[in-house]
Design a protein around this nucleic acid. Structure first.
Length: 286
DNA sequence: ACCCAGGTGTAGG
DNA sequence: CCTACACATGGG
């Protein structure tokens, strides 16, 4: 099924490879992307600047098209967002250089668990860990030759054995405990992600998320930005901190957040992608 | 061996 | 408010 984008720049692969979401795979032969959203396996590829093509299972379902519009923010807000954060020539340059990199709107529960597991970890290992959890507890989905799994539910992970979680999640050993305790809080209602999505206050949402074990400023801002629609959230990790300092900022979260304003998180995402993709090629510097 | 990876929690100034 | 440090693991 075809899906027209809004008439604003969109680059599917750039968006999916920018380190926001962790469970989009790429077919080595066709380049087609496969991922799971809301229990549906999606195959999607970009056929032109303004057109995507997708299949899904179970499906087909016209509602998936609207779901994808929301997921990739194909709502016509992209140019406003780019314009809003172009506060100086450096940021204007970054918006042009990484044109088509969209801010995604992920599913809150999966996003929360993904970023809990991101602490002192690498994008690749986070991806492997999330795939391990899905293969262990998720429901199997098939589309052609492709087999993927839904993400485990809060109930699944709340009941999971902590040692088994630790074995499946790469990184520091306490991640299993953190994941299980977050799942339990979602199950018993002490964390209500739906309510947080509806709360317009970024600072209130961040404060709530920080009640979770292993969730500090950075991870709380990631979840708020990438899944709870708080475009002013501004996560600062090591890459962004380095990027900010190179750009003449102090590196303080609040200063940059205030400077970039309503869509600060998108500015941060551009800085993250830029510093992460350009640093490796810099060999002769000092 | 050393450095790095989308940090957090705690202690101390 | 800030800075410093322990924590802990796999891959370059």
């Amino acid at each position: 099924m075809k899906l027209e984008t809004d008439a604003q720049p969109f680059n599917l692969n750039l968006t999916l490879d920018a380190g926001q979401a962790f469970r989009w795979q790429k077919d080595k032969k066709t380049g087609c992307r496969s991922g799971v959203i809301r229990g549906q396996l999606i195959h999607i590829s970009q056929t032109s600047d303004k057109q995507l093509e997708f299949k899904c299972a179970p499906g087909p379902d016209n509602a998936v098209a609207e779901m994808l519009r929301s997921y990739f923010r194909l709502d016509g807000s992209y140019n406003e967002m780019r314009h809003s954060i172009s506060r100086d020539s450096q940021m204007t340059g970054l918006t042009k250089q990484h044109k088509g990199l969209r801010l995604m709107r992920q599913e809150p529960w999966e996003c929360l668990i993904s970023y809990i597991c991101s602490a002192t970890n690498s994008v690749q290992r986070i991806s492997e860990s999330m795939e391990n959890l899905s293969e262990k507890w998720g429901k199997e989905l098939r589309l052609g030759d492709c087999i993927r799994h839904t993400f485990p539910t809060p109930t699944d992970l709340a009941a999971a054995d902590e040692d088994e979680l630790n074995a499946l999640i790469k990184g520091i050993p306490t991640l299993g405990f953190r994941v299980k305790s977050a799942a339990q809080m979602v199950c018993d209602g002490s964390l209500n992600l739906t309510a947080l999505a509806e709360n317009p206050s970024c600072s209130e949402v961040v404060k709530e998320l920080k009640n979770l074990n292993g969730v500090g400023d950075k991870i709380a801002n990631c979840v708020a930005l990438f899944s709870l629609d708080k475009t002013d959230a501004f996560p600062v990790d090591r890459h962004i901190a380095r990027g900010l300092i190179q750009m003449g900022f102090s590196g303080s979260q609040k200063q940059a957040q205030d400077y970039f304003g309503k869509y600060a998180g998108y500015a941060g995402q551009l800085i993250f992608h830029h510093t992460r993709t350009t640093h490796h090629t810099r060999t002769n510097e000092s």
